[in-house]
Simulated assay, not measured.
Amino acid sequence: MTYSDCFNALIADLSELPQIDAILLAGSRGADRADPSSDYDVYVYLNAAVDVETRKTITDRHCKYMELNNQFWETEDDGVLNDGVEVELIYRGLDWIEGELSRVVEQCQAGVGYTTCFWANLLDSKILFDRDGKAEELQKRFTVPYPAALKQAIVSKCFPLMKAQIPAYYHQLEKALKRGDKVSVNHRTAEMFAAYFDMLFAVNEIPHPGEKRMVALAGQGNHLPEQWEHDIDLLLSQAGSMDMGLLDTLGNLTERLAEVLRAQNLI
Rank of each mutant, 00 (worst) to 15 (best):
M192Q: 14
K182P: 10
L128Y: 09
I166P: 05
Q109G: 03
A49Y: 06
I20H: 08
G251W: 11
R213P: 00
R131A: 08
V105N: 12
Q227W: 09
D231M: 13
E67G: 11
A168W: 11
K163Y: 09
E191Y: 11
D198Q: 05
N186S: 15
S125V: 05
L234G: 02
D83G: 10
E106H: 07
K212R: 14
G219C: 03
S102P: 02
V80K: 09
E106Y: 01
D231S: 04
F118R: 09
K140Q: 01
V155H: 02
L161N: 04
S38D: 09
M192H: 15
T116L: 04
L224D: 09
D243E: 09
N8C: 14
N186E: 14
E67Y: 13
M192S: 12
Q165W: 04
I232Q: 14
L10Y: 07
F72C: 04
P36Y: 11
C158K: 06
K157W: 05
L138Y: 09
E136Y: 05
P207R: 07
P160K: 07
S156V: 08
D77R: 06
L122F: 00
M214N: 08
A34C: 08
S15P: 09
D233Q: 10
Y169L: 06
L217M: 12
A31Q: 13
E74T: 15
I23G: 06
R61W: 00
Y114Q: 06
A49E: 13
L173A: 12
P209I: 00
G133L: 12
K175L: 15
A26Y: 05
K157Y: 02
L68W: 15
K163T: 10
R262H: 13
Q19R: 00
G210H: 05
D198I: 06
I11E: 06
A110F: 00
L123C: 01
T116W: 00
W228C: 06
G240H: 11
A176R: 04
G99W: 12
A34D: 12
P209Y: 01
Q71W: 11
L200R: 05
E106S: 07
V104E: 12
K64N: 13
A190I: 10
C108A: 10
R179G: 04
I20R: 07
G219Y: 07
H187S: 13
P18Y: 13
L89N: 00
K140G: 03
E259W: 15
Q264T: 00
M1I: 08
R55F: 11
E106Q: 11
W73P: 04
E86W: 12
Q19P: 10
S184F: 02
D233M: 08
N252F: 14
V185P: 03
F118D: 15
P36D: 05
A239I: 11
F129Y: 15
A258D: 08
V85S: 03
A149H: 09
F142W: 02
R61E: 08
N82Y: 06
D132G: 07
V155G: 00
V105D: 13
I11N: 10
A12C: 12
W96C: 06
Y146G: 07
R29E: 04
T57E: 09
N204G: 08
E205D: 08
S184V: 05
I23E: 10
E74L: 12
L122A: 01
N70K: 15
V87W: 07
A26V: 07
R213M: 02
D95H: 08
S38K: 05
